[in-house]
């Protein structure tokens, strides 16, 4: 009786663990394969360009809105917070640092994960369940080269570009609130922003964005590629793509910050 209970306990513990390890292995082999096919020819430039447009150009409104409000709210918050110890003049540099290092990359990545990662998983998942991926193989086309590699490349390239634009818009948001609401002198605000700007602030944000873009595309492709079981499976893949990408973005945000700024 006792033995059986222990056996059952171990079994309930073991099954999810084994499943977890199997899925880690699957993901690892997917990553290795994808990276190989990212570099090995043939390339599909046309698909890459379409992905660039889909991921980049059409994400501009979302990223713009997100970052402008992020910059505005940081200006407001830091002003009222710093007033406690008379450091209101730091608003411009706080906006600069928080937008370029954190807010623009992380918030843009989360928005793009919701917009693009989900769409990727849904598209590739539908291709999987309607046998379009099998059809690609029978037409002598490697789905990793045709579907996955262009998306990974475009993710890695497009997100830093978006974040660069987001940086400008976010800082502008801070400027608008600073000048029109908090009464800063426009010239002083701009001056103090420019004087405090350091390359590392921008660069670290762009590197983060590149990593996040890779994560978004990877999770979209991986979950889509492995989806099965019709409409429900595709729905699941879509959800998983967004959730896993978002969590990984937050984790890697910490890790990368540690790499860049902990001395």
């Amino acid at each position: 009786m006792q033995k059986k209970r222990i056996e059952n306990f171990l079994r309930t513990l073991g099954k999810p663990l084994v499943k977890f390890i199997i899925s880690l292995g699957n993901l690892a082999s997917f990553i290795v394969k994808s990276l190989y096919h990212c570099f090995a020819p043939p390339y599909y430039p046309k698909i890459f360009i379409r992905q660039l447009l889909d991921m980049g150009f059409y994400s501009l409104p979302v990223v713009g809105l997100t970052t402008i409000f992020a910059g505005m709210v940081i200006a407001l918050q830091s002003y009222s917070g710093f007033a406690r110890f008379g450091a209101e003049s730091a608003v411009a540099s706080v906006v600069l640092i928080s937008v370029t290092r954190e807010l623009a990359p992380v918030l843009s990545a989360l928005m793009v994960a919701g917009r693009v990662g989900a769409a990727m998983a849904a598209e590739i998942g539908t291709m999987r369940v309607t046998e379009q991926i099998d059809a690609l193989v029978t037409l002598s086309t490697n789905p990793f080269k045709y579907l996955v590699a262009p998306r990974l490349w475009s993710g890695m390239i497009v997100l830093p570009l978006l974040v660069l634009i987001g940086d400008v818009i976010g800082i502008f948001g801070g400027y608008v609130v600073g000048v029109y609401k908090l009464g800063f002198n426009p010239a002083n605000y701009i001056n103090s922003t420019l004087q405090n700007m350091e390359a590392i602030d921008i660069v670290s944000g762009l590197v983060k964005a590149g990593v996040f873009g890779f994560i978004i595309a990877l999770m979209g492709c991986y979950n889509g590629y492995r989806s099965k079981g019709g409409a429900q499976g595709v729905g699941e893949a879509t959800t998983n793509a967004v959730v896993s990408a978002s969590i990984l973005i937050l984790i890697f945000n910490y890790v990368l910050t540690e790499v860049f700024f902990s001395k």
Binding site: E131, Q132, A135
Partner: peptide, 17 residues
């Protein structure tokens, strides 16, 4: 992939892109 170039397949649902 050599062998695939000798084959064609009609899928059940068409599997058109």
């Amino acid at each position: 992939s050599d062998i695939h170039s000798k084959m064609g397949m009609l899928f059940q649902g068409g599997a058109l892109f």
